[in-house]
Nucleic acid binder design. Structure first.
Lengths: 229, 229
DNA sequence: ACAATAGTGTCTGTCAGACAATATACA
DNA sequence: TGTATATTGTCTGACAGACACTATTGT
């Protein structure tokens, strides 16, 4: 067994980024998977990802934004570093480090060819360790939803309080008191009302529309004592 | 400008780990710095860190444990992944990714030669981006202290509730209600009393000694609604 | 008018913080 | 006995959850 030295040829280390792009549709949290065009795992559905381009990227977050732009056509969704995954076996090409990010977007109209939005609770086996990466991201998002404004990034603007309420309930998997929810949103002061109103299907009072205030478009807001659940 | 390709020679990517080892002494949160023996920044005080050894390490966490063992002589403190730091400029040797970890230990008797424990609030300029890494770690630890059992790893066992209380107050920087604190510890059920008792300096009732229950030596315990402050 | 959802006002139980009482050591 | 800190018991204010009431639309 060779005593490993710093970073010599022959035993190259691979460095990639992977992005867990999440969205909400049909009452389910879904993740974007792409059909891989190259080996390894060509033809399999996997997370969007790619090599860090050291001539081009100013950091791994840059690389993640580039991957999102090039492979999912997205410009600047809410993006946050998740964790790094590493080891000799996770990628058949060799010892690898993947810096994983997660991003949240309102659900797009339709998936492009080679794209698929699958419910995170019913995923097939994924290549590499993408299964664990998705699981980690989902856990993080559900956890942060308990005490932050993170989920607003899943709502297409403008949205009603009821819509946002439903989003939180889906993520947390249990009912949230509507009165408390409104109170919290008030305290947080991340939303601003939009002039127009909105009417739902049926015959009832229309709901005020809101959008996220610019200051919180990229930054989160943490709540003092959670949503209290 | 070259269109960057995957990971060809000439433009090698560097992959390292860095560890923010934290401890509490004289009422201050302190970080371990080591005098660098090699370039770059030979002679400067910096975080313990090193290359990932792909022939030896089973992952970056392994590498971090190895660094702690070899450079600080520690066996298995509480260790958690912090974040990854990357970019073309953070390391003069080239485009680099560092997977950073933080670890908590009771303050050791004395620093070995070439080691130094400096207060995190009064650090000099550090090489690389070690200043940001430490800042991120401190923020994470302070934040987690609000709602988890993380700080127990800073107390030399066995310890009294009063000691632990002081640790929390130091980390959070404000007084914590003693009654609430005891109640929370009770709920958490992470501590178990040790047979012997302890007497402090003066003349007063001795305090019960506790240690962390084995189940929580490596895992954290989260509190429902924080320590409520 | 009726149905249905949006939004608000008010009461109640729970829990963190304050305060006070008790416990137990050494001097 | 006196002093100092540990530990426990009890009261109180703040706030989340429940409930009920008002608002506003289409049918």
């Amino acid at each position: 067994m060779t005593t490993s030295t710093n970073s010599e040829a022959g035993n190259k280390l691979i460095c990639t980024v992977d992005v867990v792009l999440l969205s909400l549709s049909e009452g389910q949290l879904r993740v974007l998977l792409l059909k891989r065009e190259r080996e390894p795992f060509a033809g399999a559905w996997a997370l969007p990802g790619g090599y860090v381009h050291i001539g081009e990227d100013q950091g791994c977050e840059d690389a993640a934004q580039r991957v999102l732009r090039q492979k999912a056509g997205l410009e600047s969704p809410y993006l946050e570093q998740l964790a790094s995954f590493s080891g000799p076996a996770r990628d058949p090409r060799g010892w690898s480090v993947s810096v994983a990010y997660f991003a949240l977007v309102p659900h797009p109209e339709e998936a492009l060819p080679g794209q698929q939005w699958l419910p995170v609770d019913r995923l097939p086996q994924l290549p590499f360790d993408h299964g664990s990466i998705v699981a980690t991201a989902v856990e993080r998002v559900r956890s942060k939803s308990q005490y932050s404004s993170l989920p607003v990034h899943l709502c297409p603007e403008p949205f009603t309080i009821s819509q946002l309420h439903a989003v939180y309930e889906t993520l947390l998997g249990e009912p949230i008191n509507t009165v408390s929810f409104r109170r919290k949103l008030d305290e947080l002061a991340i939303l601003e009302p939009v002039v127009g109103e909105k009417r739902t299907e049926g015959a009832h009072r229309p709901a005020q529309l809101y959008r996220v205030r610019a200051e919180f478009r990229q930054r989160l807001r943490l709540v003092g004592r959670g949503l209290n659940r």
